[in-house]
Nucleic acid binder design. Sequence first.
DNA 1: GTGTCCCGCCATTTT
DNA 2: AAAATGGCGGGACAC
Length: 464
Amino acid sequence: MSMAMASSSSSVAEVAAAAAASAAMESTLPHHQQQQEVEEARPPPMLAGGGGAKSCHHAYSRKEKSLGLLCYNFVVLYNRDDVESIGLDEAAKSLGVERRRIYDIVNVLESVGYGCGSSSDSNSPREKILVRKAKNRYTWIGFDGVPMALRELKERALREKSGLAPLQTEQQSASTMSNDEDDDKLGNPDGDIENEKLSQTVDNPSDKPGAPRCRLRSDHRKEKSLGLLTQNFVKLFLTMEVDTVSLDEAAKLLLGEGHEETNMRTKVRRLYDIANVLSSLNLIEKIQQGDSRKPAFRWLGRAARPNAENAVTVAVPPPGKTVSNKRAFGTDITNIAVHRSNQDSNIQKKAKLAQSGGDILKNCKSVVQSRLGQGIKSGFVYGPFHPAGARKHELDGGNKPGQRERAEDWESLSDSFRPQYQNQALGDLFAHYVEAWKTWYSEFAQGSNIMQQHFGQSAVNHFL
DNA sequence: GTGTCCCGCCATTTT
DNA sequence: AAAATGGCGGGACAC
């Protein structure tokens, strides 16, 4: 009985088409009015027409549909001053994905902030990137609160670590004890009450005087939420001495010992999801551990140094021989269409018209490049995170020989960037990209980094 | 092969 | 009851 919403099963392509037809999202896309030089050249409205498979319609590509990319686009689309409210459906439509995916993103975005439930009283949304305001409605807050959120998160993590529980984060250390992992479904329905040992689960913790002694189903569910997992994952980085972990390790750490193959697998899957969006935010970065071996993730947005108080530290240069192979988010406009093994590719209709858009970009690019040669001011104050390339080697003692090549990123980015519109919405999105480019440029070619972009914005503005 | 992780079914929770 | 959320894991890609 697939509920009424079975309709949602419509592929992205269809959704996109629908969007094109109805251009419903207008309402929430208040075209930015600020400096818009390149803006003029508005990308052509929609569907290129025949578009056949032959032209530019490259077959299904997993990468184009990654959560990370989606998140990236999401941020590009909504991280602006004039955006306060985000509609779930509009977002989905604009980005050409189904709701479900938006939930994924929003969940981790929301959890990167602080205040997620702790002490119900303060729960200040200021420290979140985004908050849910109402059903189908989110409010964009921005990245301003992230530094503090991370600090707070770290504190809490440390407290927990040294304090009570060994190192289990607030998640299910429960399973640790129970020989058998928390079996929700299978087996005992009482499970809920059963594994309530770890008490301080979730985030509405203990400090609550009349702590609701019994965990509810909802809590149990929350324990497994992407959001909580995200926080715990981040905490891991914040408290760890080493700053890189493979997802397997992370899963193990977060899960405790009671790892049950299947459980692990699921957890790891989730971590992949999370890691991808965190990567797109540049909070972490994927690296190749040593030679060969599994890749791992490295924290980039360290809020504070182990010792130094809150010395706003930035990412340290890649240690030793780790090879960064981060994904180039922002490479594609959207997770357009097409199912994995789309047998029925009637997707033709959703077209991607690339040319004019490409021109704009090209211009943009050349402008950037031409100006790129200029010196790089460094009076810039970075936030806690910052582009991997623009590090400031303080405490870290010694600078790094291998200067990170940022420009290169730009290259690849622009090279691979092929605007493909399927509707007005995407056209707008593209416009945002152009703007984003400008901003990035202002970052002195230090890297395309959303977080940085944000933090540096104010400081950067007068350079434009 | 193995590692990634998209996709969407369907259980839960909220309206 | 319907709609909104969001676990979860099968299995399609990527390497």
